[in-house]
Simulated scan of single mutants.
Amino acid sequence: MAGTVAGMAAYIRARIDLGTLVPGDKLPPTKNLMQQFNLSDNAVYRAVAILKAEGYVVSQQGRGVFVSDRRALIAGEKRIKGIVRPGEVINHKSSSRVQAPDWVAQHLGEGECVNRVRTVTRGDLVLQASQSWVHTDIAAVVPEIDEPQACDPTWQAVYTDRSGKPVQVASKTVDARITTAEDRAALGLDEDAAVVVMRSIYVSEDRVIGVGEGIYAPGQQIALA
């Protein structure tokens, strides 16, 4: 049975978190990883790209891939509460009513939703570009989602506070890709690079009320719940 990119990344990530792989340890060659996880070479490269973008491993020219110094990950539930790392600034770019893209409609339902776009920066460096698509019903409780401004601290936290209905991260999917022209423009990158793309599903009372997608610049910590 074939493995998965996410499964390989999760296994290596867990070994690093548990300390069975430590900074400076070298990952096995691609051929060995292909056999171990029953993956193609391209799938192995994608899994390694995820770990690189998360800061778990680094490549050394001509030597291989090595475990880097671990960095704390901020969990998705904490992100809902609006917690950011020191020096980070959230820049809200826009809010507009749009028709839900196909992949969003699969979770949120077809029709109009509120599309919110933002970046997270540290100084002049763009760490993350993200979008969320929010059910229009939420605007009755959080009218700010239709305004070209950030919610304080997040729309999920404001909705929870006002409605008394907690918002939870129902699922997260993480993958890696080579940047598109849109990615490079959003992140201010000059050339192709591997980036992590994370999609999140937000639910309240067993109902999907929002979907999010974050694109993380190379080497940045990501929010995993």
Rank of each mutant, 00 (worst) to 15 (best):
D161M: 07
N91K: 11
A75Y: 06
R199M: 12
T179E: 09
V141M: 12
Y202R: 13
A170E: 14
R118V: 00
Q131Y: 06
N32K: 13
P148W: 04
V174Y: 01
G123T: 06
Q221I: 09
V84F: 01
V195Y: 03
G210Y: 08
R13Q: 10
V65I: 11
G76M: 05
R177I: 06
A72S: 13
R97S: 15
A140F: 06
E110R: 15
G55H: 03
A217I: 00
V114C: 13
A225K: 10
A10T: 09
E112C: 07
E144T: 01
D190P: 05
V142C: 02
P29Q: 12
D206H: 14
P153C: 07
D124P: 05
A105M: 12
A170S: 15
Y45S: 14
V58G: 01
G123E: 10
T20R: 11
D175V: 04
T154E: 02
E213I: 08
A193F: 05
A185G: 07
S200C: 12
A139W: 00
N42S: 15
S200I: 03
Q36M: 14
L51P: 04
Y216E: 03
R116L: 09
L125R: 08
A10S: 15
G76W: 00
F66H: 02
S132I: 00
K93G: 04
T173V: 08
I222P: 01
A140V: 03
F37R: 04
L33N: 04
V67Y: 06
K81C: 09
P218M: 07
Q128I: 04
R63D: 08
R85W: 02
L189N: 10
